[in-house]
């Protein structure tokens, strides 16, 4: 959670910096070339009137990962990380209340995913299969792959900084139609029950696989931050971050001892009307 605060405040700081810089420009514009500003808004749209509404169609690529925050001390090294996301496609409707502020809501289809390999030490784990359970402390290598496909509904506050920049910030809920979370552990050993338990070697020739897909939630929620930049009339490039604020696993699932949050970014283009 600490890191989340850092990042949110960093985003806020950079946004504030940008706003104040933009304010100067706005003042100049207001003083000198009010007509110019109007013309500018007219040019970049979506509307020059202050209570306009419309919608955007967004298409993008998804990058990111599902991660504990902060990384627990048991994770010693990230050996590999590869995003396994896909595309995202959606539509947002917006409504401005005045020149700057508005509200936006949307519906988006997404494909998220990643593969990560980590070196772990003394990693408390317990795997349940049917009525059988193996638990203890694992030291060695873990590889995890996860994928989620579903829909997101963001409801965000819109702040139009100038003619070309727009920021959105607000909560979202996601529903995962498909989700999986599996992996394997190897190149190490399990101390059964605890650090003084019997040692069970697990090699890469014969890794121990796990699959926690059915223990994942269907609904997830978090905060979305989106920045749009108008590159030409009717066309934006955008970057957005969906920062999950609840564990990807159901709350009664105890095998993974820490919470994992989905944090995925989407980069793409939007067509607006």
């Amino acid at each position: 959670m600490r890191k989340l605060r850092y990042i949110l405040s960093a985003i806020a700081m950079s946004a504030v910096g940008l706003l104040s810089a933009q304010d100067v420009t706005m003042k100049e514009l207001m003083d000198d070339k009010r007509e110019n500003r109007e013309a500018n808004y007219q040019k970049w749209g979506p509307t020059s009137d202050h209570d306009g509404m419309g919608f955007l169609v967004r298409a993008g690529f998804v990058l990111g990962g599902t991660s504990p925050l902060p990384l627990p001390a048991e994770i010693r090294k990230i050996n590999e990380f590869a995003p396994k996301g896909g595309f995202s496609l959606g539509v947002d409707g917006y409504k401005y209340f005045n020149m700057r502020w508005g509200l936006s809501a949307g519906l988006r289809f997404f494909m998220q995913g990643m593969r990560t390999g980590a070196k772990v030490k003394d990693y408390g784990m317990s795997i349940t299969m049917g009525e059988d359970k193996v638990s203890g402390r694992f030291t060695g290598t873990d590889i995890t792959e996860t994928r989620m496909t579903g829909f997101t509904i963001p409801v965000t506050a819109t702040y139009r900084v100038g003619a070309r920049w727009t920021f959105n910030l607000g909560p979202y809920v996601s529903y995962w139609i498909y989700r999986d979370f599996d992996g394997e552990v190897f190149d190490g050993y399990l101390r059964e029950g605890g650090p003084t338990g019997q040692k069970i070697n697990i090699t890469s020739d014969n890794p121990a696989a796990y699959d926690f897909s059915d223990n994942m939630r269907r609904f997830s929620w978090g905060m979305e931050f989106c920045a749009d930049f108008r590159v030409r009339e009717h066309l934006n490039v955008f970057g957005l971050v969906d920062w999950g604020l609840n564990d990807v696993f159901k709350s009664d699932f105890e095998t993974v001892t820490f919470a994992l949050y989905p944090i995925y970014a989407t980069l793409g283009v939007a067509y607006y009307y």
């Binding site: 890191k3 902060p70 990384l71 001390a73 048991e74 994770i75 090294k77 030490k121």
Partner: peptide, 10 residues
Amino acid sequence: SCIQDEPLNS
């Protein structure tokens, strides 16, 4: 802020 200090052996 990723990797924390290594825990002592147990």
